[in-house]
Design a protein around this nucleic acid. Sequence first.
DNA 1: AGCGACATGTAATACGTTACATGATTGG
DNA 2: CCAATCATGTAACGTATTACATGTCGCT
Lengths: 178, 178
Amino acid sequence: MALSHAILALLVDCPQSGYDVTKKFESSVGFFWKATHQQVYKELARLEELNLVSVERIPQEGRPDKKRYTLTEAGKQYLADWISQPAEMMPIKEEMLVRVFVGYLVAPEIVLKELQRHRQLHADRLACYQQIEREEFPQLPNLPIPQRYPYLALRRGIRYEQDCVAWCEEAIALLNEP
Amino acid sequence: MALSHAILALLVDCPQSGYDVTKKFESSVGFFWKATHQQVYKELARLEELNLVSVERIPQEGRPDKKRYTLTEAGKQYLADWISQPAEMMPIKEEMLVRVFVGYLVAPEIVLKELQRHRQLHADRLACYQQIEREEFPQLPNLPIPQRYPYLALRRGIRYEQDCVAWCEEAIALLNEP
DNA sequence: AGCGACATGTAATACGTTACATGATTGG
DNA sequence: CCAATCATGTAACGTATTACATGTCGCT
């Protein structure tokens, strides 16, 4: 169950609420793992029962209590143990590729238009990642050791999007050839 | 529900059994979509109820009847309609990246060793894809139009694995820097 | 004798998505 | 006044994984 590990990973640096964690799944860690708030709240409750995180209820006025979750020592150990185990290779699972695979069933313009749209989507995402690179890692190229790890995760995101853009362009070129 | 579409896509060219479809999910389409035999058999039964595929029972001796599924006209139309709709951008979901993200929690050698192992896994997969490229697309670079579509899907797989290898190498280099 | 390929499925459980539910505060 | 942000959750449904279940044939 990798969702739990992604959540624990987010709690390493600073205690956070389910709401905060959810937002990070829309940015930072969201580059390589996704979760909705419903999943996050349920998972946090489970992690608390396992004593991998502890909760602190912060009463607020006019809105529900904020619950701040902190990684426990057991949780930190659990995470470290998990990191030390070999990781699986994950399948791509790209809906777009299933469509391209049988693209000859429809008019070429339809596939081309969709490839162009995707090129743009990935280019936009790339620009977003590159902005984060500039903002969050200004000390480049001399990065302190601990910061190198999250940076490498971001680098993977950047490379991935660059590759998506390049493939879209390659595909458009090939389909346009006589 | 993209699994159904992937299965329909596999049935376009030739009628096949659930067993055959399952095997293709371990190779060709398996580059970008995964499914186990349990999923496939259940989904094929559902697609039959929807009349998107038809079945022909082929009695055999000593083994269970073989059920050959064929794409119906309705199924073909359904697939074409689906292809014409815009595709979602899919998240990466790489377990390895979650580990690297918080890799500073464990000794550097552990992460380095795992990166090396992954580099090898992706290099092997790449070699496998490149062999398929040579075997299944010998007419390169002058490919007939319909064949260009599955070729582009394979190209995506090749690019992806090349990028994984390159990232692993980049990561190993950065973590080894003083 | 034992393994892998052939060929199909059920059942239980885990994980993910979508819809529903509430309600104050802040900014345009 | 409307939409977005803050803040938490339940319920139903859909999809995926894992374990269980069966039985033949051909090869080593």
